[in-house]
């Protein structure tokens, strides 16, 4: 007999834990499709998490907190956007610096919020009942239906992003900038504007993901709440071959690993500190597996990824 309670709990947690990953990864896919690597995702997330909590406490409306959290992530990403897109600075170092800034800022500004209860303000399940099924199946049904609206929204986001990237002129322009900014420019695209907007969009989604982390999952503000989730989200982008829909699958795999490290606590004879390593080691393994088939990776990767573009005057 399967322990349906345990399995249900595992599925429930996985669906929930996947939300920040899906949002942040899809955001990073959009940014990277424009040719800009944004390693400030972790920073945008942590800022979104804090602002999400703060605004929810102030307004009493978690949807508002969620949205403003996204804007906060966008604001932080705009620093990265400005420095890398306009100044053409090193994208990797800039991203690291932005994350450092974000982590530090939230530690400083978030002290008043540490441990503040969000009682009654957190996202609540859309359908809190589970009638009409045998008792032993109830946990399984609950795992699928007892979620708040954002969990379901997060499934639509990758579809929307696919539409945006592949079916609209904006998306074509974004991909053109990621393939060859100089060609894009001569096609009449404002490369700076497109790349900047893609980074902002990515930051917004990362901020939303962060806000869900504090509002939907942890339920309060804790310093350093992301604990590497943002970095893992960046890792999932290559694993998804820069395809928003694949992000969904990648996020569920990763979220399952994260949920496993919770579920297994106290159930197996392994220290919780070792269980905490599971997501990190899992990410390392995922990234390694992806690179074994490097050829496929090359197919998906934007050609001009990480390459700055400055409309300079130079020798032909």
């Amino acid at each position: 007999m399967i322990d349906t309670f345990l399995v249900g709990n595992f599925i429930f947690l996985t669906l929930k834990n996947a939300v920040p990953l899906v949002l942040a990864s899809v955001g990073e896919v959009i940014a990277e499709r424009s040719g800009i690597i944004n390693l400030g995702v972790e920073g945008s997330m942590v800022v979104g998490a804090l602002v999400g909590v703060a605004v929810t406490l102030m307004s009493g409306n978690y949807l508002l907190g969620f949205a403003v959290g996204g804007l906060a992530g966008l604001l932080l990403a705009s620093i990265h956007g400005f420095i890398t897109v306009v100044f053409g600075a090193n994208q990797i170092v800039s991203g690291i610096a932005v994350t450092m800034t974000g982590l530090g800022l939230t530690a400083l500004l978030g002290r008043g919020y540490v441990g503040r209860s969000l009682y009654g303000l957190r996202p609540s399940p859309l359908y809190p009942y589970d009638v009409g099924v045998p008792d032993y199946l109830k946990p399984l049904l609950a795992a699928l239906v007892r979620h708040d609206i954002i969990v379901y929204l997060s499934i639509i986001i990758p579809l929307l992003a696919t539409w945006l990237l592949f079916k609209t002129k904006y998306g074509n322009s974004v991909r053109a900038c990621g393939e060859s900014p100089s060609v894009a420019e001569s096609l009449g695209i404002n490369v700076i504007l497109i790349r900047f907007s893609a980074v902002l969009l990515g930051g917004f989604l990362a901020g939303l993901g962060g806000a869900y982390l504090s509002l939907g999952i942890v339920g309060t503000w804790v310093e350093n709440i992301t604990a590497g989730i943002g970095w893992i989200a960046v890792g999932l982008v290559a694993f998804s071959m820069w395809m928003p829909v694949r992000v969904l699958m990648a996020s569920y795999i990763m979220a399952a690993l994260i949920s496993m490290s919770y579920i297994l606590q106290g159930k197996v004879g392994v220290s919780s500190y070792f269980l905490a390593m599971i997501p990190y080691i899992g990410t390392i393994m995922i990234l390694t597996i992806v690179n074994v088939e490097r050829f496929k990776l090359k197919l998906g990767a934007p050609t001009a990824l990480g390459r700055p573009y400055i409309r300079e005057e130079r020798l032909g």
């Binding site: 420095i83 100044f87 932005v98 530090g104 310093e223």
Partner: peptide
């Protein structure tokens, strides 16, 4: 809190690479 050094690091790094 601790974060103070982190902010400083971040801001200085950003200005250097710019």
């Amino acid at each position: 809190p601790e974060g103070i050094v982190s902010i400083m690091n971040g801001i200085i790094l950003l200005s250097i690479i710019s």
